[in-house]
Design a binder for these strands. Structure first.
Lengths: 198, 198
DNA sequence: ACTTTTTTATGATCAGTGTTCAATATAGCG
DNA sequence: CGCTATATTGAACACTGATCATAAAAAAGT
């Protein structure tokens, strides 16, 4: 067969990413298959490789989509906070809620590792940066004026803290250790950290 | 062929785990292959399945070995701390040092996920518990007497905190975000948390 | 309208994987 | 020494990521 132009290149990209993301969320990183995605959208495996170049390229695009959705969720959640509400606590909630509602797609963000000598593509870096920036705004809002310059450094560390708790919550470590309220623990650690910066 | 009894069952287990662990550390979880392990030890793939039942069984055994080594490293490190030294800070160092020195084997601990309805085997749970207990001792030693009963709960949360920092350090997230001293950040978060418990 | 060129989609093909299991070779027992 | 229980094998199966000559369709040229 030759070019069908049922879909433009951009449409095709979108179709593959969309179905790929659905697949990822359904079966998880370990069982994800590019061939299966091709089958489901009615294109051949070769077409997927034409568009994304490699398995890794496809996964990066799917993970990029997950980051987009994550940022969207975080912003929507923050928009619901009434004036005077604890916006940072709600951001932590959003971290957990998104990860739980999108277990497999979220986990794929960390299951996939680029070869050590390869940098993630710009679109990917930008999306991560956007999420960090959204959190940084909330962290900065809570810091005492003379310490606001430390907001980014602190934000990175708080994200790692929350990530650790969320990861242990989802991968079963906390259940194994008898912890029943990981979210509360994460909030407590963030509060502890902010104590000295107020 | 039939039984060669070059090695007893226990010896065979050890040979496979040992070579499997080496493989895991060399190529990482994504490229790990049971067939390759079999090839390298001069047994057939069937034998590996006889001994471990499945790919997952083999990986659990290898990850169990990693946990063993990790506990050993942690204990050795703590034994070097002179009286009056900051034992908890050295435990955090040990977390990072082991993960860095054993990147792939350490990452495999988290890359591998059991099906949701399957519990990890006892030997695995026990090894995780042993590591937690070793850290808990150090946490308890630092707590004010009336709060020592909270040691386990706090330990779980501190482990998650350190894990998050270590994970971001090794998977490139911190580099991407411009953080150059993840270990210091982890220590700072732990100190912040302990502040209220002293 | 009819070539010619360029682009795009295909799927057979290759090398690899996890997994199964009938066939077989051996160790140890009677 | 023969027999049986058991350990070991590797071919077979169904899948995977990846490649690329082939063919079809669109676009450009005449």
């Amino acid at each position: 067969m030759g070019r069908r132009s049922d879909h433009s290149r951009a449409e095709l990209r979108e179709i593959i990413i969309s179905e790929g993301h659905r697949q990822m969320q359904e079966v998880g990183f370990a069982r994800f298959s590019a061939r299966e995605v091709a089958k489901r959208i009615g294109y051949s495996i070769g077409t997927v490789y034409n568009v994304f170049g490699s398995h890794d390229g496809l996964i990066l695009a799917i993970n990029g989509r997950t980051l987009e959705l994550w940022l969207g969720y975080l912003e929507a959640r923050l928009n619901l906070v009434e004036p005077g509400g604890d916006r940072l606590a709600r951001a932590i909630d959003a971290y957990f809620e998104f990860a739980i509602a999108n277990r497999h797609a979220w986990a794929a963000l960390y299951d996939f590792r680029l070869p050590n000598d390869v940098e993630p593509p710009d679109h990917y870096r930008e999306r991560v940066a956007a999420i960090v920036a959204a959190v940084e705004r909330e962290v900065a809002a809570v810091l005492a004026a003379p310490r606001k310059s430390e907001a980014l450094k602190l934000t990175r560390s708080l994200l790692a803290t929350v990530h650790g708790h969320c990861f242990f919550a989802l991968n079963g470590t906390f259940r194994m250790l008898g912890e029943t309220d990981p979210l509360a623990a994460a909030r407590a650690r963030v509060d502890d950290a902010l104590e000295g910066y107020r």
